[in-house]
Design a protein around this nucleic acid. Structure first.
Length: 515
RNA sequence: GGUCUCGUGGCCGAGUGGUUAGGCAGAGCUCUGCAAAAGCUUCUACAGCAGUUCGAAUCUGCUCGAGACCUCCA
């Protein structure tokens, strides 16, 4: 099997992934700022790094996945809104800051859960690590790369750039920044405009504040990630992830801070997911075009023609490579919804087929007979059998190639007609060897559920409901056998009105799904 | 203005210099009491121009267009 290759934003190349400590992976992903509700765009990094996390686990790595919660709030830089965002909104909503933080943290966790994202190993909060942040800032000052003015501390970018490759991650040149940095209020106390805050003195109205060697204040935007990643993953770790829009200035600043404190770049592999767009434009609050997750799930946003389930959104995201932009539209989401449904029904079928096969073998074994009805050990259609195995084995190659979930799904979709044909009889069961059928089931289990993190939308395991359905299906069967189609159609149509779709199978059986 | 990315068939999207991406939608057929589902077949592509090459959607240049970052941002 091929080795895992990842696209490293830092080198702009695909590189073979080699963890610092064999068998172990440390991964840090920038988490949400819990000052408001998450929107569709936010779903992308957390789903992306979830399948990356899952795949690393699948490969057998022991992974420590750290994803922070930014609950201190980043202030708008340099005085435009010299107020902690969280404190500001809290005043508007008449809530305690921590109450607000709790509310949106809960909402975030709820959304993550619905997306079937695994929980990170550690989910540290910024407010819980003020001490570490202050410690790091002190180190940077001691090293001579930060200075204090009026109770605030700034990172000396110019000095840093003279000794280290500043701007490499984001492809930025310091001189360009000098020219393009805007005039903002409060700039004058900084030595240079491109310097960024490590610690900000808190104005009197600022609610969230902590005591520091420089007086009462709050931490700058970038220091929390440096402090927490260092604390939980060490001075250098394997993967740092986040959205592409965080490359500058956030990740660039993290690199600078950690380089001064720890003497080397914090992470070896920098992975960035691309944006979700709406009519070709990035979804984000700056553009006022975001659709909140609660609105997605309920279909309440004016742009939505219907509600979209968390799994539909997950699947929608998985159908695209994580480094490409993904354009939202109702049509695209509906396509994803239908595709996922077809895929999942085939997967359910496959599970049944394999279970039946196993039962047959078991029955044969129990009676001591050779499994006359079972499949022979060899494939009657070796060409088909081979092509299936090839499609399956390619899945590993695709994932190893920078997590190409789009290709993975394409191959799996090629197998959907095979599964359906096994059920429909267009392909005889003997055509495939039992091994191949088993292999297919294993790969579907691994890829669809374990790695891509998809799951069946629960249609309710209500025994009473299934009982009633069995009864109705039974009555309808009787009616049909009497050619009483008025009755049989009435049952079917009325169930359809309730959102339950009956399907008459070829073999006389009847199945039902929820529309 | 600076830096960078992208432009694929009705829509969403993969893509290696030479072979079908895939999904959804459309068309035809099969199955079916009808329907749904399913199966089979099928249509429309690589922004434009020029170049490199035996051969380019895939490399180079130019033109046009879109977007991202440079400010909080996933």
């Amino acid at each position: 099997m091929s080795q895992l290759k990842v696209h490293n934003s830092y080198t702009r190349q695909k590189e073979i992934f080699t963890p610092l400590t064999p068998g172990h992976v440390g991964m840090y992903v920038c988490g949400p700022t819990v000052s408001g509700e998450s929107h569709l765009g936010h779903a992308r990094p957390f789903i992306t790094f979830d399948f990356i996390y899952r795949y690393l686990l699948h490969l057998g790595y022991k992974v420590r996945y750290v994803r922070n919660i930014t609950d201190a709030g980043h202030f708008e830089e340099e005085g435009r809104e010299a107020e902690d965002k969280i404190a500001k909104k809290a005043a508007i909503e008449k809530l305690e800051p921590m109450e607000l933080v709790q509310k949106y943290t809960n909402l975030f966790h709820w959304a993550m859960h619905r997306f079937n994202n695994l929980e990170p190993s550690i989910e540290p909060t910024a407010t819980g690590h003020i001490v570490e942040q202050i410690g790091m800032i002190e180190t940077i000052i001691r090293e001579g790369y930060a200075y204090e003015i009026n109770g605030s501390v700034y990172f000396d970018v110019k000095k840093y750039a003279a000794h280290y490759p500043y701007g490499k991650l984001s492809g930025r040149v310091l001189d360009d920044l000098l020219e393009t940095t805007r005039d903002l209020d409060g700039q004058e106390e900084k030595h240079n405009r491109q310097d960024f805050a490590l610690w900000k003195a808190a104005p009197p109205e600022h609610i969230m504040r902590w005591q520091s060697p420089w007086g009462q204040g709050f931490p700058g935007w970038h220091i929390e990630c440096s402090a927490m990643s260092t604390k939980y993953l060490g001075e250098q770790f394997d993967i740092h992830g986040g959205g592409m829009d965080l490359q500058f200035p956030h990740h660039e600043s993290e690199i600078a801070q950690s380089t001064i404190c720890n003497k080397h770049i914090p992470a070896r592999y920098w992975l960035h997911n691309n944006m979700i767009t709406l009519n070709g434009r990035k979804m984000g609050k700056s553009y006022g075009n975001q659709i909140r997750l609660t609105e997605m799930f309920s279909g309440t946003h004016p742009l939505l023609t219907q509600a979209y389930s968390p799994m539909t959104i997950r699947f929608f995201i998985l159908q695209t490579h994580y480094r490409s932009t993904l354009d939202f539209s109702n049509e695209a989401l509906q396509a994803a919804e239908k595709g996922l449904k077809r895929l999942w029904e085939a997967y359910d079928l496959l599970k049944k087929l394999v279970a039946d096969e196993a039962a047959l073998q078991a029955a044969g074994a129990a009676t001591g007979e050779t499994p006359g009805n079972g499949s022979p050990a060899t494939a009657a259609d070796p060409v088909l059998d081979d092509s299936i195995r090839k499609l399956l084995l390619e899945l590993d190659e695709f994932m190893n190639d920078d997590f190409n979930t789009a290709k993975v799904l394409a191959n799996i979709f090629e197998l959907v007609p095979v599964v359906n044909s096994l059920k429909g009889g267009q392909i005889r069961r003997e055509a495939l060897s039992p091994d191949t059928l088993q292999l297919m089931k294993r790969y579907f289990d691994d890829y669809l559920e374990k790695i891509l993190g998809l799951k069946g939308e629960s249609m309710g395991d209500d025994h009473k409901l299934t009982g009633v359905m069995d009864l109705l299906i039974d009555i309808r069967k009787d009616a049909r056998s009497r050619k009483d189609y008025a009755t049989s159609d009435k049952i079917r149509n009325q169930l359809l009105g309730l959102g339950i779709v009956l399907k008459d199978e070829k073999d006389g059986g009847v199945s039902f799904t929820f529309a």
